[in-house]
Design a protein around this nucleic acid. Sequence first.
DNA 1: GAGGCGTGGAC
DNA 2: TGTCCAAGCCT
Length: 344
Amino acid sequence: MAFEQEEILQITSKIESWFTKSARDFPWRNDDFPWGRLVCEFMAQQTQIDRVAQRWPIMLQRFPDAKSMAISDEQGVLELWQGLGYYRRAKNLKKTAEVLESEFGGEVPSDIESLLQLPGVGKYTAGAIASIAFEKHAPIVDANVHRVLCRLCNHAGESTPSTWTWQISESLVTSCNSPRLFNEGLMELGATVCTSRSPSCDDCPLQSCCSAYKENTQRDIPPSKKRAMKKCVYHYSVVVEHEGELAFEQRKDSGLWAGMWQVPTIDSDIKLTEAQVRKKLHLKNKLVSIGEFEHVLSHRIISFSVFSCKLARERRFFWVKQDLLHELPLASAQRKVLAVHCIA
DNA sequence: GAGGCGTGGAC
DNA sequence: TGTCCAAGCCT
């Protein structure tokens, strides 16, 4: 263990006290309840919390409890998830709502073991719900906590949450007064003070116990993540219009943008000609190029080519009136495709 | 364990 | 402008 018991009590008490007076005003902090917290944690996975704050009230208004989501269809959840990315989270949230309804009487369980059974709930999310919604002394380590704890101990090892950090987190939360205040406070400190780029050490309640601050190593801890090389691929989208309606198809249930909708599109590892795209999509009329753009993901660089095509209304497509497009679950790249069509 | 899985803000 | 990053999970 990295800390003496006395240091642990100092650290936990300083964090709880700092958070009590410095907590930002997020909508879920007005009346925290387990389902709201669970939805918040799903939306917050790999997503900056300020963006979650805009979407969370809309999601909770439509789905105020697990039952309302459990009996709805997945499309409604995906619709409200548009633009947030990592759409598997939306599908897992819907599945989790169903499990809560069928296995847990519609309530969010408070123990880690039960929480970990829920699809889309890993060690962090389970710990966050148990500690923040139920005041359980359960550890959490997200990117913020990992950074704060590594700096606190001048631990230069791992770039991402590690066994070491989880042990430190557990040793602290075990002895804290309020797991809700301590865990959320530790995250909030990392998000607002002990930031990745330029930490505001002069505003930090832990400055006097921070080993990295003493050694002036805080800007190098933790080390940057190794990021995989982005693979370049090609997507060909065709806007098919017929009497004010556009043709759409749904992407398959797994992989990129799973379950989201798109205008007829071909994904390809290699460049294709207009004729090849037309043949693969079984379109009879010539495709007219109306624009191109690049869409960058965490693991791909996608070169989009956009075409338009005149066509009779075919039943194999789902036809949507132009003024109802906002109800269709579309990833951001497809919004860009539609923007190209609007300008053209 | 390494890669798939998005997006937009910050600098 | 390009690079890094974010309240991670799953396979």
